[in-house]
Design a protein around this nucleic acid. Structure first.
Lengths: 207, 207, 207, 207
DNA sequence: CATGAATGAGGGTTCATTCAT
DNA sequence: GATGAATGAACCCTCATTCAT
């Protein structure tokens, strides 16, 4: 996508990157507002302040925009995770404290990026094709897997997989509409989300 | 839409009702397969074995079909709930036992009606308009509210509302894709769902 | 394409067939006027007096229209050939007389169907895919092959193939723009076409 | 377009001319590959190694490129013809020998310039506008006219015109796809082309 | 009532051409 | 001059809805 970017003048490259970001921002907004199917390339272009044709200068089509947005989400999450996790002692803290540290940034990310959930809700993908948004959650899932394994050394791999999947599904559900809430509402939702996760894990005997 | 149904001959009315059911069945299948946006009125008609024109004899449009399907789901759930709940002692059982009795029929309903979730996932609705599917969950929510109130008499109404909402959202997330699983997979998912609900409630101090 | 046509009422079927003919007529006109690439589905629809959407009731797309038109040409040519050839003694007549009898109907067909040539001139087909119009010429080529073989029993198959190909290519070239000529011009062009064919064959030693 | 070329420095002019040649080369290749309609100005620019904007520095548009290419073909053909014809005695040789000497360079030119035929095949021109490629053939036609007149002094002008036109049309048809053939195939095609021309002329009573 | 052909606005996308840099 | 991003009209096609039969 950006292999020969270096050949261009810095100013051009900068403008191109800004355009790409603007398009992805516009796409994210549209996704949040009307979902994937009703997000049109023309509406993305309009929202990004460019013409329909220009959009195709940067992306090969609607799907490519979704892919790039998914990638951008994944990169941002990875960066956020690195920051939040890197400094944290994983084995010592209480479960509820750990959940707060690990989960809160993810919640915040969902609040900040209401388009994210729309990508998970895509209904136009044949079953056999992975939804390109999956890597976003995989970043999260991988970290969870690591933490749970470190704290529960003997855990059965199949059980681990089930637990992670359950956490992801619960989490997705609980993030629904969180961006539309006011600050107090979001904090309440975040508290319930933490409670649900801690409660589930505790009940499951996972520390 | 059906106000003057009584004027028609019984046989006509019966045929009309059968047609309506066929249309709703077809719509549910399509919804399950491709989601709301990609469900076309023509495909519904084809699946129902009627012509596109006939479909509009019974429904004023695509939206009206979704509404009617939501209503039908609500009615079915209400009926099922009545049956499953009516005979049950609500205050005595262990939480985990109660959850099994209350939640399992709902899980089964989701398994049997994969179109249901597609209605919750609609992205084409302006925020201010309630999703017509909500009544389905309201049926469930009302019963949950009743049970929780009976078992936890002094509970704060605001807290109650938050708990119910959280349960609903978790539940929705956990039902995602359950119809596509095999029997063993469904049972595992059901077990995790129960664990999540029980764990959340227990952690919340709700019995 | 028309497998279950019989199920429809006769009047509907008749109208459908008329529409198909109208679309093919319109397509042929457009092809003759502006060529394949510049023939648009919308212009075909407009010329056929229908809406763009209606066109797709009868054909799956632009390519399918070209295919159907090619088929219709092939069928018409086959019918014409049968009539002109069936009653003719092939071995006895002078070459020039035979050419007149065999070639004139083909010339007339090209005059009557200026869209035909546009199909041969398509530039959008990957080499490996046969142009769907080929069968039209194949009908002609097959008859030529038969005649030449009967009159020149010992002819080498490779030479035969080369001769037929050459005749076809010459012929295509000579039909260019014939529809735009007036009656006298057409007759002159036909005369030259016959002369070219007879001359080539005679020079080649083929009787 | 190039009126004030003289004002520029020689080096600039030279670079400009090189650019023009590069653009015409690129256009010819594209024409050969995909035909006129599917040849895009952007693909020409890319193939010429310049930007789309630069292309418009040298040509006012797609049509102008086709015109210039036609002119270049015409000039090249004229030069080639001069060379091949200048040294030849036109009245003495056998017809078949003369045809070989006159026609072979033209065939070779078509082999070497597969884009040429694509210009003749343009379908986007209103009837009233002459195809700008015609001058190419006119060069050829003029020489043919001259030769035929010299060898057949009393020929009727109308008949002469008809013969020349017929030769051109046959020839065009026979050049179709010749570039795609291997060496042996090309020689066979050339032989048939000569046979067709000789045969036609002989049958027509033209020596 | 049922039918299914007809409609036409709008979707994703391309490309000849323009213009700020 | 050269660049290549930007433009927007037009392309092929879909689908919710209507209407003549």
């Amino acid at each position: 996508m950006a292999e020969d970017t270096a050949k261009r003048t810095p100013v051009r490259r900068a403008r191109g990157l800004a355009r790409i970001e603007a398009i992805l921002d516009a796409a994210a907004s549209e996704l949040a507002d009307v979902g994937y199917d009703r997000t049109t390339t023309n509406s993305i272009a309009a929202r990004a302040g460019i013409s329909p044709g220009s959009l195709y200068q940067y992306f090969s089509g609607k799907e490519a925009i979704a892919d790039a947005l998914a990638e951008r989400y994944a990169a941002t999450v990875a960066a956020k995770q690195a920051g939040a996790f890197g400094v944290t002692d994983v084995t010592t803290p209480e479960l509820s404290e750990l959940v707060r540290v690990v989960v809160d940034p993810i919640i915040q990310f969902n609040v900040d990026n209401p388009g994210l959930l729309a990508l998970f809700a895509r209904t136009d993908l044949p079953e056999r094709l992975a939804n390109p948004i999956e890597p976003v959650e995989e970043t999260f899932a991988a970290r969870l897997r690591e933490i749970v394994t470190q704290r529960n050394p003997g855990i059965d791999p199949g059980e681990l997989a089930r637990v992670i999947e359950t956490l992801i599904l619960m989490f997705r559900g609980l993030m629904k509409g969180i961006s539309a809430l006011d600050t107090a509402g979001r904090e309440r939702r975040a508290a319930e989300t933490r409670a649900a996760i801690v409660g589930y894990l505790a009940h499951r005997g996972i520390r």
